[in-house]
């Protein structure tokens, strides 16, 4: 099934239409292996590269972390500085995800259903955090919320700096997953509900929001995964103060710089496990949606 790959954004959005088109051929029993000789060679070469680049290095992390068994994980997690970093990262990532669920849905709604001058510009600006290098994102936020802030907000080196950086880099996720779904939403269902006397709030609560939920969930998962793994935008902005503004990625980096590879690998394995969990959840959500479609 290719729906898992349908774009950072369109993933949850498209299965319905795609599934509708598919059955004419693929429902027939397809052979399990249709590789030609050339295609098999191509698959071999790409798999070697994929292993060298991704699979073996990731396996090395898990292997290094597991050299000392579970005690390595326990020791790493019991370090109070690491624990503080995990608590801060997860807490701020959850907060940012909640804000994104509300603001991302509102922005997507405004982009699809509202019409005003400058909307096209708003649409392009949403993508800026995707394209902007993370270190530049940090510098940019520092200009408005740092020591020389023109509005007198000095959030650098505080927990709020972490929040700002995460909110910045995760802004596009929910907007871009919800927007296409909202665009494709059939208006006749809403009109039918209205003609049967449903109020506006009822229509939004009972018809619009439920059809957006899978897209919101997919976007929320992506934004949470991105938030807990963020590094670059925090470097200049948060000051990386132990116990106060140090996030998990920074902790992994300082383990690496101190030559404590085992602890770095243990913490990295925990982050990988969370990333994997998010991918699995996304896949389940998408398959449930495509089945319903």
């Amino acid at each position: 099934m290719t729906s898992a790959l349908a774009g950072v954004t369109g993933a949850a959005a498209e299965p319905a239409s795609r599934e509708g088109r598919r059955p004419r051929r693929s429902r027939r029993a397809t052979p399990r292996n249709t590789l030609t000789k050339g295609a098999a060679l191509g698959l071999g070469v790409t798999m070697v590269w994929f292993s060298i680049l991704v699979l073996i290095p990731l396996a090395a992390i898990v292997a290094t972390a597991s050299e000392n068994g579970w005690s390595q994980y326990v020791a790493t997690l019991q370090n109070p500085q690491t624990w503080a970093a995990i608590k801060l990262t997860v807490g701020q990532a959850l907060l940012v995800t909640v804000i994104n669920i509300v603001m991302g849905t509102v922005i997507a709604w405004v982009l699809v259903r509202d019409r005003f001058p400058g909307k096209a510009i708003l649409d392009v600006i949403i993508d800026v955090p995707f394209a902007l290098p993370t270190i530049v994102a940090g510098l940019v936020l520092l200009a408005l919320y740092g020591p020389n802030s023109p509005i007198g907000v000095h959030w650098a080196n505080t927990e709020r700096a972490v929040f700002l950086a995460l909110a910045f880099v995760t802004l596009p996720f929910i907007v871009r997953t919800v927007q296409p779904v909202l665009e494709e939403l059939e208006s006749d269902v809403e009109e039918a509900a209205a003609s049967l006397g449903a109020s506006r709030t009822t229509i939004i609560r009972r018809i619009v929001l439920p059809s957006l939920t899978p897209a919101i969930a997919a976007g929320a998962a992506l934004s949470f995964a991105r938030a807990i793994s963020e590094y670059g935008s925090l470097v200049l902005l948060s000051g990386n103060l132990p116990f106060r503004t140090e996030v998990v990625s920074v902790r992994v980096l300082s383990f690496i710089e101190n030559g404590n590879t085992a602890s770095a690998a243990a913490l990295a394995t925990i982050m990988l496990a969370v990333a994997l969990l998010v991918i699995v959840v996304l896949d389940i959500v998408q398959r449930r949606v495509s089945r319903r479609g």
């Binding site: 990731l58 992390i61 992506l222 793994s229 590094y231 690998a265 990295a268 990333a275 994997l276 991918i279």
Partner: peptide, 12 residues
């Protein structure tokens, strides 16, 4: 997978 792995973890 690479989309949800932290850059620091990639480096490590």
């Amino acid at each position: 997978v690479p989309l949800s792995v932290s850059p620091v973890v990639v480096g490590l």
